[in-house]
Design a protein around this nucleic acid. Structure first.
Length: 829
RNA sequence: GCUGAGGUGGUGGAAUGGCAGACACGCUAGCUUUAGGAGCUAGUGCCGCAAGGCGUGAGGGUUCAAGUCCCUCCCUCAGCACCA
C-alpha cells in the first residue's frame, strides 16, 4: 500500500481531465442544462486568495453534483482584468498594464487549475482583451443609440487620492470605497447611463428571482422607491410684512409620502441649502441670523449626522396650508436634507416623530387633525402624485487609462446641425419631461456632436502610452496622445476628437456571464446587430440563460449585481438577450479572515498563500477544509491547524480505499454501516443544495470513522461518489484503483468517477430498527434503554420502570408522557 | 436610532420543542524503535472521590420537556441611517 500523496495524484488527474474534456459544456443536447457561475476574479498581483477558494469550491461541488445527476453543466471562468490596482502598479513600475495583466492571469490560471476546479477552460474570457471589449464597447453604443447614455456636467464624487470620479455605488459614507480617503464634489462633464429609467424594472424583477433575502433588501433600499405627492404651499398674501411673491417665488413645493396628513401640517421646513432662501434676502426680516444658522448647519452636516434638531424661523415669510387655508410659518431646519425630495417638507408633528421632536423643542403647534384621502388632498391642493427614487443615474466615465475606451467621437461640425443623432435626441427630449417628474435630472445639450464609432471600426483599441499617471486636472492619460485623440468624424469625415475617458471597471462585468455562452463566436466575429441577433448567438443564449446559480461576495449587492441586472434589462428590451433577469438564484459566501480575525492583507502580513497550502496538503484537503471550517455564509477566521482535520480524514479515506483486497473480502456491508451510508448520501445530497457544506463534510467524516473493515467494495464506491465533488482527485484515484479503468489517461467520459451517476439513497434502508428509549423522571434523564421501534407505551413503561425505580419510589406517579420511538417521562410527586 | 441575523466548551462549530456540545482543532494518559502537521487506544463542558448537582449572553414566562417558543434587557455582526 502506498501512502496518500496528493502531490503525485493531483496533477496527474488534472491533466487527464483536461485531455479528456469531461468538463467541457455542450451548447445543446438531450440533457437538461445547468449554468453555475462564480464572480470572475480580478487578477491582482497578490494571486488567488482563500476567499476565491471558498466560493469556487462551493459552486464546483454544485456543478460536479449536477453533472453526476445528468445535467449538461456550464461552469465557466474568466478575468475581470481592468482596474486601478494594475494601473497603479504600472505607474509605479513603468510597465504596460497589458503585460502585468498577462502575468497575473497566468498566475491565477495556474492556481485555479491546481485546485482541480471543473471549469470549462475553453470559454475563458478576459475583459481587457480587445476581442472582448470590442463587444463591451458595442453594447455601450446600444445604450448611446437609445438615448440612455448622455453627457452632462455634473457634480461628481471625486477621489483626489485615486484621481478618479466615482459612481454613487462606489462611495461609502463619504469615502472612496477603494482607498478609504474622503471624496469631494467636483464639477465635470461625464458620460452617464440612465439607470433611473430602469428603477421600476430593477425593483419588480426582484420578485421573480431567488436571491438571498438580504441581497434583495439591499437592492430595494438602494433603489429606494417612494410614492408620494408634490404639493405647492403658496406664500401668504395676508400676513403682515409678507408678500405673495417673495424674491420672485410664489410657493414652496414639498414632497411627502403622507399627503393624507396635510391637515396636521403646522409649519414648512426647508433644508439649509434650499435655493429659495437666497432669493429672499430682502424679505427675510432676520436674514443675518438665518445666514449664521445655515453656515453652522452646513458645517455640522459634514461632521456628525445626528446633531440635535435645530432650526430658525424665517421672519417675514409665511405660507398657506393649501388644505386648510391656515397661515403657517416657514423654518429652516438642520434635519431636512437638500438632496432628498424637494428639499422642503410640510412638517406634521402629529404623525412624524422628527417633526414632533422639533415642534416640542420650539413650541410649535401639534394638531390632531383628521386624516384625509389622497384623492381629496390632491384635488384640493392641486398637488400631484409622484414616484421618487434614491437610485441615481450611473456615472460611467473614468479619467484613467486602464479601462475600455468609450467609443465616441466629438465632431464640432456635426454639433451644428443635428441629423445623425436625431433619434437619440428625440428620445432624450421625451425623457427630459419624464425626468423632471422623476428625478430632476436635467439633460444638457452636451450630446450634440457626439458620434458613435461605427461597428466596423470597433474595437477602439487602448493605445500604448508612456505615462499612465492620471492628472489632477481630471483628464485621462489618453488625452495626451494627440495622434490617437485626433481622428476623422465617422459621420461627416471632418476633423474630430475621440472621447478620452474610459469606462468604469464594472462595465466588462456587466455582461461577462452572457459572454461565456458565446465565447468562441465573440472572438471571431465583428460586433454588429446582425451578429448579435443571429441564430448562432441567440440559440446559445436561449439555451444557457438564465444562470441557474450565481455565488459571490456580499459586497457586490449594490454594485455589480445591480449594474449587471440593469444591462440585461436593457438588452432584453432591445431584443438582444432572451431573459430580463440573468440570475435565477444568487447566494453569497462569508469572508475568510486571517487567523487574527482581521481581513487578510499584505501590509498586515497575515495572508494565507494557497500555493503553499496546496503544496503541503494538496488541493483536496484545502477544498475540504474551506468547506468544513464553518457555515458558508458566515465570516470565519483561518485556523492554522484546522486543515489537519480534513487532511487526516483524507488519509483515512485513502487507507480504506487503497486496500482493495480488504474491500473485496467484505462481500456484504454490515447493516448499521449500510444504514449510515444511506443516511450519509441523503444528508450530503441535501446539504449541498443548501450550501451546508460544513455539515456535509462532518457527516462523511462520521461515516468514514465507522466504516473500516465493515464495508463492501460496491458500497465503498457510493461513498467515493458523494465525496467526489468535494475531493475530486483522491476519489478519482481510488475509483480507478478499484479497477474501473485501466488507463491513467481518461479517453472517454464514462471512465471518470465524475461522470458516474449521483447515488440515490434507499428510503427503506434509512429506517432504524432500534432506538434508545430515553427515560425521564420529572423531565430529568435518569436512564436510557435500547428498544425496538414501534413499541407501545405499556411496553415502554415495563422496560423503563426497573431502570428508574429509585426515583419512582420517591412519590406517586401522577402522569406519564410517552413520545413514541423517543422517550418516556414519569411525573412523580 | 430603525431593520435583519446572531450570542452554545479552551477554539471552529453541531443539534425537526425530546439524552446539549455531533464533527474537527487543541489538550491529557497509555501503546507503537515512532523520519514527518504522524498512527492507534482511552479520556476531555463545569463542580464533585462518588452518588449527584449545575450548565447554551442576563432575567422572567409557556410546557411533562426550552439552545430552540413568548416577554424584558445586554452584547456582536450586517444593512439602512433625519429618505419626508
Amino acid at each position: 500500500m502506498t501512502r496518500y500523496n496528493p502531490k503525485e495524484i493531483e496533477p496527474k488527474w488534472q491533466a487527464a481531465w483536461e485531455q479528456s474534456g469531461i468538463y467541457k459544456a455542450e451548447d445543446q443536447g438531450e440533457k437538461p442544462k445547468w449554468y453555475s457561475l462564480i464572480e470572475f476574479p480580478y487578477p491582482s498581483g497578490a494571486g488567488l486568495h482563500t476567499g476565491h477558494i471558498r466560493s469556487n469550491t462551493a459552486l464546483d461541488i454544485v456543478s460536479r453534483k449536477r453533472r453526476m445527476q445528468g445535467f449538461n453543466v456550464l461552469y465557466p471562468i474568466g478575468w475581470d482584468a481592468f482596474g486601478l490596482p494594475t494601473e497603479n502598479f504600472a505607474i509605479k513600475t513603468g510597465r504596460p498594464p497589458q503585460e502585468v495583466t498577462k502575468e497575473n492571469t497566468d498566475t491565477f490560471r495556474r492556481q485555479l487549475k491546481s485546485l482541480g476546479y471543473s471549469f470549462d477552460w475553453s470559454r475563458e474570457v478576459d475583459t481587457t482583451d480587445p476581442n472582448y471589449y470590442k463587444w463591451t464597447q458595442w453594447l455601450f453604443l446600444q445604450f448611446f443609440k437609445e438615448g440612455l447614455a448622455y453627457k452632462d456636467k455634473i457634480n461628481i464624487n471625486w477621489c483626489p487620492k485615486c484621481k478618479i470620479g466615482l459612481a454613487n455605488e462606489e462611495v461609502e459614507q463619504g469615502s472612496c470605497e477603494r482607498c478609504g480617503g474622503p471624496v469631494e464634489a467636483r464639477e465635470k462633464e461625464q458620460w452617464i447611463l440612465k439607470m433611473t429609467e430602469y428603477a421600476d424594472k430593477l425593483l419588480d424583477g426582484l420578485d421573480g428571482v431567488d436571491f438571498l433575502p438580504e441581497i434583495k433588501t439591499q437592492q430595494r433600499n438602494w433603489i429606494g422607491r417612494s410614492e408620494g405627492a408634490e404639493i405647492n404651499f403658496p406664500l401668504s398674501p395676508f400676513s403682515k410684512g409678507s408678500t405673495p411673491q417673495a424674491g420672485g417665488i410664489s410657493s414652496i413645493k414639498v414632497f411627502t409620502t403622507r399627503p393624507d396628513t396635510i391637515y396636521g401640517a403646522t409649519f414648512i421646513a426647508l433644508a439649509p441649502n434650499h435655493s429659495a432662501i437666497g432669493n429672499w434676502k430682502l424679505e427675510i426680516g432676520n436674514y443675518p441670523e438665518v445666514k449664521v444658522f445655515i453656515e453652522k448647519a452646513k458645517e455640522e452636516a459634514e461632521g456628525q449626522r445626528n446633531a440635535d434638531k435645530a432650526g430658525i424661523c424665517l421672519q417675514g415669510i409665511t405660507a398657506l396650508n393649501p388644505a386648510t387655508g391656515e397661515e403657517i410659518p416657514v423654518w429652516v431646519v438642520n434635519y431636512v436634507l437638500g438632496d432628498v425630495g424637494t428639499g422642503a417638507i410640510m412638517a406634521v408633528p402629529q404623525h412624524d416623530e422628527r417633526d414632533r421632536e422639533f415642534a416640542e423643542k420650539y413650541n410649535l403647534p401639534i394638531l390632531d387633525k383628521p386624516l384625509a384621502s389622497w384623492e381629496e388632498v390632491l384635488e384640493k391642493t392641486g398637488g400631484k402624485k409622484v414616484v421618487r427614487y434614491k437610485l441615481r443615474d450611473w456615472v460611467f466615465s473614468r479619467q484613467r487609462y486602464w479601462g475600455e475606451p468609450i467609443p465616441l467621437v466629438f465632431c464640432a461640425n456635426c454639433a451644428k446641425e443635428p441629423g445623425e443623432n436625431s433619434k437619440h435626441e428625440a428620445r432624450n427630449s421625451k425623457q427630459i419631461q419624464n425626468s423632471k417628474v422623476q428625478t430632476e435630472n436635467k439633460y444638457s445639450d452636451l450630446n450634440y456632436g457626439w458620434v458613435a464609432v461605427p461597428d466596423e471600426q470597433l474595437p477602439v483599441e487602448l493605445p500604448r502610452v508612456e505615462k499612465y499617471q492620471p492628472t489632477d486636472t481630471g483628464e485621462s492619460p489618453l488625452a495626451g496622445i494627440t495622434e490617437w485623440v485626433n481622428t476623422a468624424c465617422p459621420s461627416c469625415g471632418g476633423p474630430a476628437t475621440r472621447e478620452t475617458d474610459v469606462m468604469p471597471n464594472w462595465a466588462g462585468s456587466s455582461w461577462y456571464f452572457i459572454s461565456y455562452c458565446i465565447a468562441e463566436n465573440l472572438k471571431s466575429q465583428a460586433p454588429s446587430i446582425k451578429q448579435f441577433t443571429s441564430p448562432e448567438f441567440q440559440n446559445k443564449l436561449k439555451y444557457w440563460l438564465p444562470i441557474d446559480w450565481y455565488n459571490g461576495g456580499m459586497e457586490h449587492s449594490t454594485r455589480h449585481l445591480l449594474y449587471a441586472r440593469f444591462w440585461m434589462q436593457f438588452l432584453h428590451d432591445q431584443g438582444l438577450v432572451p431573459v430580463a433577469e440573468p440570475f435565477a438564484k444568487r447566494t453569497a459566501q462569508g469572508m475568510v479572515l486571517a487567523a487574527d480575525g482581521k481581513k487578510m492583507s499584505k501590509s498586515l502580513g497575515n495572508v494565507v498563500n494557497p500555493d503553499e497550502l496546496v503544496n503541503e496538503f494538496g488541493a483536496d484537503a484545502v477544498r475540504l477544509y474551506e468547506m468544513f471550517m464553518g457555515p458558508f455564509d458566515q465570516a470565519i477566521a483561518w485556523a492554522e491547524r484546522g486543515i489537519l482535520g480534513p487532511w487526516r480524514f483524507l488519509e483515512k479515506v485513502w487507507n480504506i480505499g487503497s486496500r482493495v483486497h480488504f474491500l473485496e473480502e467484505r462481500v456484504e456491508t454490515l447493516p448499521e454501516v449500510k444504514r449510515k451510508l444511506h443516511q450519509t448520501i441523503k444528508k450530503v445530497s441535501e446539504d449541498i443544495e443548501g450550501l451546508s457544506m460544513n455539515t456535509a463534510v462532518s457527516t462523511m467524516m462520521e461515516f468514514v470513522n465507522m466504516a473500516p473493515g465493515k464495508i463492501s467494495k460496491a458500497d465503498w464506491q457510493l461513498l467515493l461518489r458523494i465525496l467526489a465533488p468535494f475531493a475530486p482527485h483522491i476519489t478519482e484515484e481510488l475509483y480507478q484503483l478499484l479497477g474501473n479503468s485501466k488507463h491513467e489517461v481518461l479517453n472517454s467520459k464514462g471512465q471518470s468517477i465524475h461522470s458516474q451517476p449521483w447515488p440515490e439513497y434507499d428510503e427503506a434502508l434509512l429506517v432504524e430498527e432500534k432506538f434508545e428509549l430515553v427515560i425521564q423522571v420529572n423531565g430529568k434523564v435518569r436512564a436510557t434503554v435500547s428498544a425496538q421501534k414501534g413499541i407501545s407505551q405499556a411496553q415502554a413503561e415495563e422496560m423503563a420502570k426497573p431502570a428508574v425505580s429509585k426515583w419512582l419510589e420517591e412519590g406517586e406517579v401522577k402522569k406519564i408522557v410517552f413520545v413514541a420511538d423517543r422517550l418516556i417521562n414519569f411525573i412523580v410527586s
